[in-house]
Amino acid sequence: MSKKICLLPCNGLDKALGVITREVSLKVIEKDSSIDLICPVLYNTNEKKYDEILKDAQIIVIDGCSTRCAAKLADMKGQKISKRIFIPDMTKKFQLRPGKKLVLDIDGEKLVEKIAEEIFTEFITELTTVTEKKEERKFVGVEYFEITVDKYHFRVPKEGYYFNENDCWAKIEGKTALVGITDYFQNKAGDVIFVDLPTIETKIEQFDEVADFESVKALLQLISPVSGNIIDVNNELENSPEFLNCDAYEQGWVAEIELADLEEDKELLMDGPTYFEYMKRKIVEEN
């Protein structure tokens, strides 16, 4: 079952775009009453009112200006933010400039409609899909080849994973594959501090870039071992990029790809035992 989705708008009053956050929120709950709306002022004054609603909820914050009051409020209350909407970005995206009058003008109304639509088609769909998939997604009984060189420990899954020469993996799960980076890759990269996840529904070819990483040492890319369509991403990495270092083959998965032609892709991939030997040779050469 999916987690509850809540909207937390800034509800600003002194700027036109703050007003938009409220209108958007009301529009969204009008279309789907299962979504809860958090009143920021009441949440600030009497947070107990929302204890039950916010338990295990996924929160979408909507901020109207760069003060980002809604995001700050969520942070102050120790809430994890699942998605952030920043209205000035949306005005640029949709090329709409609402006026400052009491009643929304045509651009303001259009902007409210567009953002509400985007919340449904992009954010809520993604959050629902991710939640459902995560509940199904389990990494049970993965066995590893292991080797320690100096102070570094490297693992390679024995079965079920395929690897390319760019030190990225694909774990095949029927018609889809999870992709990520190997232990060797993360060891070389150092601590990952930021992950730029791909957009769902992006088509990629084998050896295309799936995602960018920023580590303490460098900017790096996950090069896809397989071709297909991205159907899911690991949003947990946005808040916990360290999963790529501490659990590269399981919690550190980056994206899920609906496979286009696995048999063809496999021609340029290595299985676990082969990649383990390949990785050991690279380590020996470097030392």
Binding site: C10, N44, L73
Partner: peptide, 18 residues
């Protein structure tokens, strides 16, 4: 003058706060 309550709540944050 309007005192924007959300901004007011975020007030003790130094950068761009209320």
């Amino acid at each position: 003058t309007i005192i924007c309550q959300p901004l007011f709540m975020a007030g003790d944050i130094n950068h761009k706060g209320g």
